[in-house]
């Protein structure tokens, strides 16, 4: 059945087992795998791989949508619809009203003690009856002990209802939005993009930081394909869009 340019027999050779490989020989595993890749690719692509990887990468056709077709209000509207679709709460307010709105939401959710991530503008915090805690090397049980967490986000993607958090070790680490049962995120309208590629352009500068993309509360459909919200992460996600 022609077409393959390598001996048929190589498909029938057993691969080496551990007993045949000298233990503690990591370099040979590495060089052997790389050699196998090179020989496989040489057989198909020829000896001189032209062009270079960078040149070749640039020829990948990217005719998919890369830009917004919506104006600001349209992006806010789309993001709102997506959040509602995921079962997340969505609120809107002017920038001068964020502190009052945050206090309102926390009251209606009966949350009092909130972790505050370092990217939160202190102007968003009102003091009446609420306790805000910054992460000064808190233990996991101290984090779990809080009623929820308040964060900002680096960029929000309307088309997919996605919040992108870029973490830093000084007061904005990943565990903060993971252990508590409630997450309230404040999104500035200016950080909302429409498409996923625009979102990744905004994330490019943060690509070496830990990044978490959050699209609705955690969920599973593992049992009879019925959606259940909040398996391990925060079970409730609310979002304030600052317009």
């Amino acid at each position: 059945m022609g077409g393959t340019n390598h001996p048929q027999s190589c498909h029938n050779l057993p691969s080496p087992t551990m007993s045949e490989i000298p233990l503690h020989d990591p370099m040979s595993a590495r060089s052997e795998i790389l050699a196998r890749i090179r020989s496989a690719n040489r057989g198909i692509l020829g000896v001189d791989r032209e062009p270079t990887a960078d040149e070749s990468w640039r020829t990948i056709p990217r005719t998919y949508r890369q830009n917004s077709s919506l104006a600001d209000a349209g992006r806010v509207q789309l993001l709102t619809e997506r959040f509602i679709d995921y079962g997340a709460g969505v609120y809107k307010c002017q920038s001068v009203d964020v502190a009052a709105k945050v206090a309102d939401i926390l009251q209606s959710r009966t949350k009092q003690k909130l972790l505050v991530s370092r990217d939160v503008d202190p102007m968003w915090l009102s003091q009446d009856g609420l306790k805000f805690v910054y992460d000064n090397e808190l233990s996991y049980s101290e984090i779990e002990d809080c009623d929820g967490v308040l964060t900002g986000c680096t960029v929000a993607i309307a088309a997919t209802g996605t919040l992108a958090l870029c973490h830093t070790s000084n007061g904005n680490r990943r565990a903060l939005t993971l252990l508590p049962d409630y997450h309230l995120c404040v999104v500035r309208a200016s950080t909302i993009v429409e498409t996923v590629p625009e979102g990744f352009r905004a994330l490019e500068a943060h690509r070496l930081q830990p990044i978490t993309l959050i699209s609705g509360p955690s969920a599973t459909a593992d049992i009879e394909m019925t959606r259940i919200q909040g398996v391990h992460g925060p079970r409730v996600l609310d979002c304030v869009i600052v317009v």
Partner: peptide
């Protein structure tokens, strides 16, 4: 889904986080 709930990206070890 348009997007799954969580995507994580990390690079090696991040001191003080994870």
């Amino acid at each position: 889904e348009r997007m799954n709930p969580y995507n994580s990206v990390w690079t090696g070890v991040h001191p003080g986080d994870g």
